[in-house]
């Protein structure tokens, strides 16, 4: 139990947390704009991972496989909104909209199991090395550098789009007040569509970076999706910096929980989320005051 051991735990935690942060960011984006909690987010991550494995098996180079995967999952996210949630949002209740996203997640899981089989699928590291890089007796795999860098680029790109482009301004305006946004000539349905697509793209980034680390199965997505929700909750649902901090915090928590029992990491971290909900309903960034989330 020396310092290096804890730094090792820290690195593992931050790497896992980065993936959670990407997924949580997608949740928050969709939730802010549409008021929907998209349970299919984790499945979009799984589809992203599965696609990149297939492309690499087909012999595509990384610089072709990565953009195509992200683009395809972006379109899938748009399709989910256009085909299922868009038509339902007018008459739907909170419960019915959540159940729709739950149904979609099941459909994606089932189709993935039919299409890609039930066995875990593997792919090699993006830049394979014989040994992990060792810094001050802490070993870091090249893939975890890929993960940290990739998530950082994705989050940075999202930030730039949100802050510096017209679409980003429309997204932010719709998240603050959909009615006013519509009155000022913003096509809120189009903006919602883009939010779903962007959430899909973020999930895809998480999925394709994660694919070499774990064996992807059709069921991988649902657990990571829940972790993403948990991360968003820890950060205070609806806040974008909160989602990133929440993701990293959850990753660290899990890597600490693995000291107690490796099998129970999920249970421990999820119970922690319930406790956060009980004590700090607005997350670690929010105050203790209960604020009604918009559209809930």
């Amino acid at each position: 139990m020396d310092l290096a051991f804890f730094i090792q735990l820290f690195v593992t935690g931050v790497t896992t947390g980065a993936i959670y942060a990407a997924v949580a960011m997608g949740f928050v984006l969709v939730f802010r704009v549409t008021g929907i909690l998209n349970f299919a987010q984790g499945e979009l991550l799984m589809v992203g991972g599965m696609l990149i494995i297939s492309f690499r098996e087909a012999g595509w180079p990384l610089y072709a496989a990565i953009p195509v995967t992200i683009a395809l999952v972006f379109l899938l996210g748009c399709a989910i909104y256009a085909l299922a949630l868009g038509p339902a949002i007018k008459r739907g209740t909170n419960i019915s909209l959540l159940l729709i996203t739950l149904g979609i997640s099941q459909v994606l899981q089932g189709l993935a199991q039919i299409g890609w089989g039930s066995a875990p699928r593997y792919t090699g590291d993006f830049s394979p090395t014989a040994h992990p890089i060792s810094v001050l007796s802490v070993s870091i795999t090249t893939q975890s550098i890929w993960i940290l860098g990739g998530v950082l680029v994705a989050l940075g790109a999202t930030y730039l789009v949100l802050e510096r482009t017209g679409i980003g301004r429309a997204l932010r305006a719709s998240s603050i007040d959909p009615m006013m946004a519509r009155l000022s000539g913003i096509n809120v349905r189009m903006v919602s569509l883009i939010a779903f697509g962007a959430a899909g793209a973020l999930a895809a980034v998480g999925g394709l970076l994660l694919a070499p680390v774990i064996g992807m199965t059709y069921a991988t997505g649902s657990l990571i999706g829940v972790k993403g929700i948990a991360a968003a909750v820890i950060g205070g649902f609806g806040s974008i910096p909160g989602a990133i901090i929440g993701g990293i915090a959850l990753g660290l928590l899990e890597s600490l929980a693995s000291l107690i029992s490796t099998g129970l990491t999920t249970g421990i971290s999820l119970l922690a989320v319930v406790i956060v909900l009980l004590i700090l309903p607005n997350g670690i960034l929010g105050g203790r005051r209960v604020k009604a989330a918009v559209g809930v």
Binding site: A84, L99, I100, L102, G103, I104, S105, Q106, V107, Q109, G110, L111, Q113, I114
Partner: peptide, 9 residues
């Protein structure tokens, strides 16, 4: 799973 998901949606 697919059929139940589709019905639910």
């Amino acid at each position: 799973i697919v059929i139940f998901g589709v019905i639910l949606v």
